[in-house]
Computed example of a mutant assay.
Amino acid sequence: MTEHPKLSLQHVTKQFPIRGEDTAFTAIEDITIDLAAGEFLVLVGPSGCGKSTLLDLLGGLTEPTSGAILLDGKPVTGPGLDRGIVFQQYALLPWRTARKNIEFGLEAKGLGKAERRDLAEHYLDLVGLRSFGDRYPHELSGGMKQRVAIARSLAFDPEVLLMDEPFAALDAQTRESLQDELLRIWETTGKTILFITHGIDEAIYLGQRVAVLTSRPGRIKNIVDVDIDRSAEDIRSSAGFRSLRHHIWTLLHHEVERARTQELTAPADDSEVVHV
Rank of each mutant, 00 (worst) to 15 (best):
T2H: 13
E3R: 14
E3C: 02
P5R: 12
K6W: 09
L7H: 08
L9F: 10
V12A: 02
P17H: 11
I18G: 01
G20H: 04
T23Q: 13
A24L: 10
E29L: 08
E29N: 14
E29Q: 15
E29Y: 13
T32W: 10
T32A: 03
I33C: 06
L35W: 08
A36N: 11
A37Q: 10
F40Y: 01
L41C: 04
V42D: 01
L43F: 15
V44C: 10
G50E: 09
T53M: 10
T53C: 10
L57S: 06
L58G: 01
L61Y: 04
E63R: 14
E63K: 14
G67A: 11
G67K: 13
I69W: 00
L70K: 13
D72Y: 07
V76H: 02
T77G: 07
G84N: 01
Y90C: 04
P94G: 04
R96F: 09
T97Y: 01
A98P: 03
A98Q: 01
R99F: 11
I102A: 10
I102V: 01
E103I: 02
G105Q: 04
L106R: 10
L106M: 08
E107N: 08
E107G: 14
L111N: 05
R116Q: 11
H122G: 03
D125T: 15
L126I: 00
L126N: 02
G128T: 14
G128A: 03
L129Q: 03
F132Q: 07
D134T: 04
Y136I: 11
P137L: 03
H138I: 10
G142A: 11
G143M: 12
G143S: 08
K145W: 15
R147Q: 06
R152L: 06
R152G: 07
S153T: 12
L154H: 05
D157Y: 08
V160S: 00
L162H: 04
L162S: 05
M163T: 04
D164E: 05
E165R: 13
A169M: 07
L170Y: 00
T174S: 12
E176S: 13
S177V: 02
D180F: 10
R184M: 03
E187G: 10
T197R: 03
A203F: 00
I204K: 06
Y205L: 14
G207R: 00
Q208G: 11
R209L: 03
L213M: 15
R216P: 06
G218W: 09
R219N: 06
R219M: 15
K221R: 15
K221I: 00
D227Y: 00
D227N: 14
I228R: 09
A232K: 15
E233W: 00
R236H: 11
G240K: 07
F241P: 14
F241G: 12
R245T: 11
H246F: 03
H246M: 14
H247P: 02
H247E: 15
H247C: 03
L252V: 05
L252D: 12
H253F: 00
E255P: 07
V256L: 09
R258F: 05
R258D: 07
T261L: 13
T265M: 06
T265C: 01
T265N: 12
D269V: 12
D269G: 03
S271L: 10
S271W: 05
V274E: 12
V274H: 03
V276M: 12
V276W: 09
V276A: 12
